[in-house]
Lab assay of single mutants.
Amino acid sequence: TLFEALYDYEARTEDDLSFHKGEKFQILNSSEGDWWEARSLTTGETGYIPSIYLAPV
């Protein structure tokens, strides 16, 4: 399942991933609670993103 960003997000740590509204992600690991490891389909970068900023596509 792909997810789309509902809002912009600016990374706060080196493990976080910055993204823009409308960016799409492949989720790599969603077992860490509210922060999911994801790969951006726009940039190819991976990192942790807040799941509350996402909606399934």
Rank of each mutant, 00 (worst) to 15 (best):
D15P: 05
S40F: 03
I52K: 15
L28Q: 04
L28K: 04
L17F: 12
E4A: 07
E4K: 06
A11T: 05
Y48Q: 08
F25E: 00
S31L: 12
N29K: 08
Q26V: 15
R12W: 08
E37H: 14
K21L: 05
E4I: 15
F25I: 02
E45I: 10
G47E: 01
L17C: 03
T46W: 08
L6N: 04
I27L: 06
S40Y: 02
W35A: 05
D15L: 14
T13I: 07
R12N: 10
K24F: 12
T43P: 00
S51I: 09
V57K: 03
L41H: 04
S40V: 04
E10R: 09
P50H: 14
W35D: 04
A38P: 00
K24I: 15
L6P: 01
A55L: 08
A55H: 10
L54M: 10
E37C: 14
E4S: 05
T42A: 11
D8M: 04
I27W: 01
G44S: 05
S40P: 00
W36H: 02
R12K: 14
K21T: 07
T46M: 09
D15Y: 15
E14G: 14
T13A: 11
A55C: 09
G33W: 10
S30W: 14
L28F: 06
D16C: 14
W35K: 11
T13W: 13
T43R: 04
E23S: 04
L54K: 00
Y48M: 14
D16H: 15
P50T: 04
K24V: 15
Y48V: 08
K21H: 06
E37L: 15
S31G: 10
E32V: 11
T13S: 14
A5D: 00
E45M: 15
E14A: 14
L28C: 07
P56E: 09
G47H: 06
N29W: 07
T43K: 03
Q26H: 11
A5H: 00
F25A: 00
N29Q: 07
T42P: 02
D15N: 15
S18M: 03
G47A: 04
W35N: 07
F19N: 00
L17N: 01
T1G: 12
D15Q: 14
E23F: 03
S51C: 11
W36A: 02
G33A: 13
D8V: 03
T1P: 12
D34C: 13
W36D: 01
E10Y: 09
W35Y: 13
L54H: 01
L17S: 02
E4V: 14
Y53N: 06
G44V: 01
T13Q: 11
A11K: 09
Y9M: 04
E23V: 02
E10N: 11
E14S: 13
T43H: 03
S18Q: 04
G47I: 04
D34H: 09
K24G: 03
Y7A: 12
I49D: 00
K21S: 07
I49A: 05
D8H: 06
S30C: 13
T43N: 06
E14D: 13
I49W: 01
Y7P: 00
D15M: 14
V57F: 07
A38H: 00
Y9W: 08
D34I: 12
W35L: 10
E23I: 01
P50M: 13
P56C: 06
I52G: 14
L6W: 05
F25N: 00
T46E: 09
P56D: 05
K21R: 10
S40Q: 05
T13C: 15
G22D: 03
